[in-house]
Design a protein around this nucleic acid. Structure first.
Lengths: 236, 236
DNA sequence: GAGTGGTCTAGACCACATC
DNA sequence: ATGTGGTCTAGACCACTCT
């Protein structure tokens, strides 16, 4: 683990524990460097992580301040790309009912999204996912069999991400996410409690492994009233 | 302008112009440093910008590759915090109809969102915003008068962001964004063409200036079928 | 082993804010 | 004028991938 990440983790914890509070000025860069025994550039890298998470603000000539905003908001950036199970670990119980599990050849649309050849085989999975036993999401997932050989029903009932990371030792490196809404079909009406003419909200997610290959294309649909998405945008 | 931003801009342009194409390996860090006459750390800062934008992927021991994904997708990170007018500049015509423009004292909710005292005066603005003459958004905005004195009706019809940046010389530094959905009220039904029992999608945005103060709290509501939001999430 | 990216340092110099 | 953060460099060393 890199030093600057450790420092960021430590300072983030101090902010969450309110050791550094709302609007308070952090020690000067120089003082922080001394206490963490690191170089100025290293400290900047650490603090830049917190800037991007929306926790602090740095002003040239003035100082570094804790951004007084919503302590309840957990780092929204990190909650994707780790799957539902990890996301709600210790908060809610995640269970899944597998509605569909087959292998199909990729059509043109899938070949484009997954960057594979038309006709390459992919798993096609539909899962109904429950939070604390309440149906919450319909996940439609496509995974190339070349990337994840030997996917079994038991993995779908638990955490696919867990299988990827713990058993196959692969790492999710990034996700491209598109959110939109569309009128529900009987599938969503049946499982999400939507009425005819009511829309669902969909998160389309394409996940990249750290070896550069695309691991999944998922459409995750949910009731509009359950939906919430948070992010922080920082001018670069 | 910093050198690493210039380099990032140049390489980004080359990717968009397909000089570096899908899945292609970029020149090694060392070669890039030579051709841009910069240090390795500077080049890394430049390339890290493109990594965060989802344009490239870097793999220790292997190289730097163009992420072959959706050339149509314009940098989604930069499109917020600049207002609709800037966002659609040259693409669509943005016009606004002011439905409400008054000054009110902040209640507890607003004081929390804007980090001001209860009772401090804020502008309360409701605008219907058109893209190419089609009603698209209802924006409900609150701005502390202490931050933007002298806001006038004419600014609301054009670009508030333009007034902030060009006249007051302030800079938007970051935004905290929360997206959710809720059942429409007569207001949304009247202006957005929603039916009773149909939801709108709302973007709640809190914008920070580079001097650290909060400049606006906006609820931006739109028809669910118009909504799309894209982002890239990269594991830090 | 050779190639490639990742981290860290020490020090220089610059830009901006505040007094 | 001083304090503060931002950028850049040269060089060292480490970690991972590929073959």
């Amino acid at each position: 683990m890199a030093k600057y990440r450790d420092i960021a983790d430590d300072i983030r914890q101090k902010i969450k524990n309110q050791e550094y509070t709302f609007g308070q000025k952090l020690p000067y860069e120089y003082v922080l460097c001394m206490s963490y025994h690191c170089n100025k550039e290293t400290m900047k890298k650490a603090l830049d992580i917190l800037v991007k998470e929306g926790l602090i603000i740095r002003r040239r000539g003035a100082g570094t301040f804790v951004k007084d905003y919503d302590p309840a908001m957990d780092n929204p950036v990190s909650k994707f790309g780790r799957g539902l199970t990890a996301q709600y670990e210790g908060i809610k119980e995640v269970t899944s009912e597998v509605l569909e599990f087959e292998v199909v050849p990729a059509d043109e649309h899938l070949s484009e999204k997954l960057q594979i050849d038309v006709g390459d085989f992919v798993y096609h999975i539909i899962r109904l996912r429950f939070l604390d036993k309440i149906p919450h999401l319909i996940d439609i997932t496509y995974i190339p069999i070349s990337v994840v050989p030997n996917l079994k029903l038991q993995h779908l009932k638990g955490s696919v991400y867990g299988y990827i990371e713990k058993v196959l030792k692969l790492k999710i490196q990034s996700c491209h996410l598109t959110i939109n809404a569309a009128l529900s079909t009987p599938l969503e009406q049946q499982y999400l409690g939507l009425k005819e003419n009511e829309p669902y909200i969909q998160e389309e997610q394409i996940s990249f492994l750290s070896n550069g290959s695309i691991f999944e294309y998922t459409l995750s649909r949910q009731h509009f009233s359950h939906f919430e998405f948070q992010t922080v945008i920082v001018q670069q």
